[in-house]
Design a protein around this nucleic acid. Sequence first.
DNA 1: GAATGGTCCCATAGGC
DNA 2: GCCTATGGGACCATTC
Lengths: 106, 106, 106, 106
Amino acid sequence: MGVMTAKDIVAKRNAAKPAEPGIGHNSRPTLAAKDQLKAFVERVERLEEEKKALADDIRDIFAEAKGNGFDTKALRVIVRMRKQDADQRRELEALVDTYAVALGMA
Amino acid sequence: MGVMTAKDIVAKRNAAKPAEPGIGHNSRPTLAAKDQLKAFVERVERLEEEKKALADDIRDIFAEAKGNGFDTKALRVIVRMRKQDADQRRELEALVDTYAVALGMA
Amino acid sequence: MGVMTAKDIVAKRNAAKPAEPGIGHNSRPTLAAKDQLKAFVERVERLEEEKKALADDIRDIFAEAKGNGFDTKALRVIVRMRKQDADQRRELEALVDTYAVALGMA
Amino acid sequence: MGVMTAKDIVAKRNAAKPAEPGIGHNSRPTLAAKDQLKAFVERVERLEEEKKALADDIRDIFAEAKGNGFDTKALRVIVRMRKQDADQRRELEALVDTYAVALGMA
DNA sequence: GAATGGTCCCATAGGC
DNA sequence: GCCTATGGGACCATTC
């Protein structure tokens, strides 16, 4: 597939933001960029692992509920509806804010 | 909110799995079922909140990386590729294990 | 960019569903496939035009409302909230259906 | 539904544009504003329904095409490319017109 | 495995 | 002119 090489990334970086002064000609900054890249990637990976763990936990809960005689599909609908309720609350507040601003009450 | 009544839940629960003995006719267990339902729903909601928080954190990291001159899209490709690598590694190990077991080497 | 040629499309088509009997070796069916492709594309384009026209009409309405002293942002929130209400209704029905099925009342 | 009162609307309306003379103190125009609001919202909703219907029709066409062995993703690319072509054509014509006008040939 | 629902990213459009 | 907000599309996980 070959979508992109590390070199491209760094090239892109220098092009996009020649931030650090005194940088040029494939010298050190590349190193720094590499380290930074590594750090970003690893932070993302760490969080995605945790995210996956949570997703697994959620699955387990549904499985447990099912084992206790609850209907998974119905449970999901309930969770979804409660989320919608929360969203609507937020929307309502947004509307109120809009009015408050428009009326000079903000 | 009140989109559904406890009675509905319990009716459904009993129908799906008349697990606990002595349950019937709107008696006490209903209460328990309701509490259980509430507990399941709240556990799921709690975890989904955490999941969303993590997703937000990840977004923030990408934003930060972008602010440091990295190309977001490219970063995502890297993360995806590394994930694939990890998956392949795991698959390979699983395969090896399978062989080991089959050969009585486990 | 070169994402896909007409040839690919047809190749894919034959591979995916060798439906018509007696087809092979780049003969007639290609022709038919081409016509069919053209027809699909044009139907889509026609509908998308209409869709765009409707979007424009909606824009006009908001502009008109604004000209009549209404706050566009607030209007949009209202429309969105009413849509959410409708969605919730649907969810509720979905939940009821799920229960009905589970209880053998479907 | 009732997320907002007519009074809110009118308050906002008057605040935003005290256009019509003689309006004030919760008198009649309130009614008119409410009706107007209702009309705007319903017109928007009506058009959005139609828009959604069209979107569904488009989906159906893609599904039908898929059922005939075409690759949906590829089809979308084709539609997109043709749209770009059309846009470029339009731009070119606009450019030509501009020149024509500038040269007194319009 | 087919289909459905959910999540996420991007691209465009609209407002300030 | 930027910048947010919204809609559309792709992808992934789950269900039957």
